[in-house]
Design a binder for these strands. Structure first.
Lengths: 199, 199
DNA sequence: GTCTATAAGCCGATAGAC
DNA sequence: GTCTATCGGCTTATAGAC
């Protein structure tokens, strides 16, 4: 038979595309740029991904898998303790925001570029945010506090804030304040501690 | 004499452009779309704005003026009280986030679309964020608390969070939690009150 | 309305494994 | 030689600008 397809080509293309999409924005990156950076021809790219939309969907899918795994890993040490899990979740986001090259949240950025997108990438992006918000809601509910809705809103607000502030200079600086704030909010709500100022 | 330029044409074009840019994103809106919606000819638009970049810069400039005025108005009742001013500022953002058609912060959205933009629009956007952050820093400093940097970071985080969460379903729902949280943070830090749970 | 640049997507041409 | 992965130029649509 004829030539075998080179192994790992698809992954290389996705990695290149993901890096470019994340760094410069989806609309700003053309297929040619991806092709140049990946060092391949057009037919190879279009053979693996029938359209740019498909490629973007894959980019978000891959990003989501990676982030879900990070979150899982971060929460692992928390065991069954929902308070520890919430802090670990926040700390993981804060850690990411301190990484060099952090440009904010890929899903929030995508939705800022395509506000009306109900196609595959848009659904992946909104789905991620919906699921993560649900995860926070679930953990807060397990805390058994008096006002779970308010506490969940506040923790979510803080997570949104880390991602929002991260795309700009001063990136991860907010992280530590965010993590300690979540800790204090949980301590206050569960009555298991006092704020540092009152001790 | 020839006909006089119609009064308010420039304003009408800007208003149309601003609405489209904000709703759909800057990159997604073409000059033709603006021309159609404004009901004017191409030469009229290009007569007032030599390029799309200029038009976008004007859009952000107008938006900034409006937002600065809103903030001023909101903080007016606070008088010389920095704590009240910070709460008013947060409440104003929360109020905006509840308006129908709220799609997040125009400046943050712009920077998500053009992460490497150091041209006129990019500078207006970053400038607004820098100035607003400075405003928060200044107010917090006037509170005379022990750790102004941490408190300022936290309040900023909350403001970022409102804007971040607002571009999606569930928009302004976070607002009330955000405002009360800022109040509590200030009360705690200044020692002028206790959290509701400990009272 | 027209011109030009650029982007997405397509297809003939090339080349390497059998 | 044949067959297929891959390459790079080509076509068409659209956007900015005059």
């Amino acid at each position: 038979m004829a030539r075998k397809p080179a192994a790992g080509t698809r992954d290389r293309i996705i990695n290149v595309a993901a890096s470019l999409f994340y760094r410069s924005g989806v609309r700003a990156v053309g297929m040619n740029e991806i092709i140049d950076e990946a060092g391949c021809g057009k037919s190879l790219l279009y053979g693996h991904f029938p359209s740019k939309t498909e490629l973007v969907a894959e980019y978000l899918q891959v990003t989501r898998r990676a982030r879900d795994e990070s979150a899982q890993r971060a929460m692992h040490d928390a065991g069954d303790d929902p308070a520890a899990a919430l802090v670990a979740l926040t700390a993981e986001v804060a850690r990411k925001a301190r990484e060099p090259g952090f440009r904010g949240c890929a899903f929030r950025n995508y939705l800022a570029e395509f506000p009306n997108g109900d196609d595959a990438p848009g659904q992946i992006a909104s789905g991620y945010l919906r699921d993560t918000r649900s995860q926070v809601d679930g953990l807060v509910k397990r805390l058994g506090v008096a006002e779970p809705r308010i506490l969940a809103d506040r923790i979510w607000l803080i997570i949104e804030g880390i991602y929002g502030g991260g795309a700009r200079p001063g990136a991860g600086r907010l992280g530590p304040s965010a993590v300690s704030l979540v800790e204090e909010l949980i301590n206050d709500a569960t009555g298991s501690g006092r704020r540092s100022l009152t001790s």
